[in-house]
Amino acid sequence: MAFAAFSTTTTPSTDPVARRRSPVALFLLLPGILYLMLFFLTPLVSLLLTSFQAPREFGDIGQYDYAFRWQNYVEVVTTYWPHIVRSFSYALAATFFALLISYPLAYFIGVKARSWPLLQSLMLVLVIAPFFISFLLRTLAWKQLFSDESFVVQSLKALSLLGPEAHVTGTAFSVIFGLTYNFIPFMTLPLYTTLERLDVRYLEAGNDLYASPFQVFRKVTIPLSMPGIVAGTLLTFIPAAGDYINASRDFLGGTGTQMMGNVIEANFLVLQNYPTAAALSIILMTVILVIVSIYVKRSGTEELL
């Protein structure tokens, strides 16, 4: 009897472990895993393989064979390094300006407008409203506004703020402007969600502890809104680095403002140089991954300070 009692008390103790390894969870995860294998892992491997392909001997344009031609990467970097550098600097600049514009906006909607919920929802709608119009159309509209005959450019020239031969479209300014403009909602919304939950009592406590409004902002508000800043900057930086619309010659860009996205597009669709396009994509992904992981790690530790 005593043994029986003993055994019944010991079995449940091993039970939780067994239950944690239960096949039910795995079974439930299966569709997701299959989906990722099929639509994420397979294309990724295929992309990686393509990036090492070599042109077929006596083949036509766009015909390649599987090989291990690592020189593809060397060629890509030596040929396109200005585009790579440009992509990340434009993306960085756009992220910076978007943060600069979005933070006060999100702070106003999320903190200052708390006592006026109607104003709060109205402003949120205004932030999201541009999404109702295609982003291509909006970018084209900016191209119109910045075109040489536009009122804006003509006025700037009349005021001698722009030289008579100067253009706005096709410059780094217009591309960064377009990127900033297009990604502001992606920056504002995550910032808003964190700032909306910001407990103003922490700010009062900061004030009470001899911190000036600026110090409170730097030492309390910024660290507490870090999750929103990280989410917003990533949502802006990652797509901006790979963007090919704003920098395209059909939109706000010019020959001197081509980014990686444009080069990949040209190589893939026009030149049918698939290995180069694939290698560029892999480089883009890797650099973004490295930058993002360093950034997330840094911002995580900064929060602790």
Partner: peptide, 9 residues
């Protein structure tokens, strides 16, 4: 403060 308002970060 009533809520203590200790900085969580």
């Amino acid at each position: 403060f009533q809520s203590y308002a200790l900085f969580p970060h």
